[in-house]
Design a protein around this nucleic acid. Structure first.
Lengths: 123, 123
DNA sequence: CCGCATCCTCTACGATACTG
DNA sequence: CAGTATCGTAGAGGATGCGG
């Protein structure tokens, strides 16, 4: 439900609000997918790169990113329709950060796994 | 439910799995709070810095971070009990990244707001 | 091919109450 | 103070089917 106090926090501190909307697995996966590919990608291409994402969530996430100015959506009215997505400069800026988080995650996976094993054993 | 394909994706690609667990608002808020404060913080102190977070979510998040080796939890058995949380070197590494995302969010808030206004008007 | 609408299921999360 | 335990709900998110 998100408390009243939290909603006020978000209203008073837009940076936290934006951080909160960015801190979402579908957002980071979508941005990283688009960013690492480099140029525009078709809808099905993106969905293939994120195995298991439902079209609902993918569409919803891409729309949100488009609304926030992170992604440009281009419709080519052929038959069948062709829709391309690409990061805007703003989105590329975010990708620059998120890709570092992704790389950090890749590098630290082992360390985290060990910590988990230690924690689970120590209980 | 998270599809079978997605679960396999997480299993096959631990970096994505870790990225997904990090990409969570409570995680980023907790890490940023601990990181920007610099040294150890008591439970109530953290909760005051994140207005509106429920104790349930805060405890759950801190436990997860502790299990993943990002946070050290220190219990001082006085009366009443005193519990301190601080980032481990691993957690500090993550903070180094997340703080950049936070700063970026702060800087780009205006740009995002404009994009939203444009999008909403354009519909 | 892209994606909206519908329905339905789970689970994330909040509220509340109780303990060492 | 710093939790745990329990319960209830809103909303995330998946499955399915239709339409341009």
């Amino acid at each position: 439900m998100t408390t009243k106090a939290y909603e006020e926090y978000l209203r008073d501190c837009p940076a936290v609000a934006l951080l909160s909307t960015i801190s979402n697995r579908w957002v980071s996966l979508a941005v990283c997918t688009l960013g690492s590919h480099g140029d525009a990608m078709r809808y099905n291409h993106i969905s293939r790169e994120i195995p298991g994402v439902s079209q609902k969530m993918l569409t919803q996430t891409l729309r949100m990113l488009e609304r926030d100015g992170m992604v440009r959506r281009t419709v080519t009215p052929s038959v069948p329709v062709r829709v391309d997505y690409e990061l805007t400069p703003l989105g590329q800026g975010l990708y620059g950060l998120l890709s570092q988080v992704r790389d950090w995650a890749a590098e630290k996976t082992g360390e985290v796994d060990e910590a988990r094993a230690r924690y689970d054993a120590g209980v």
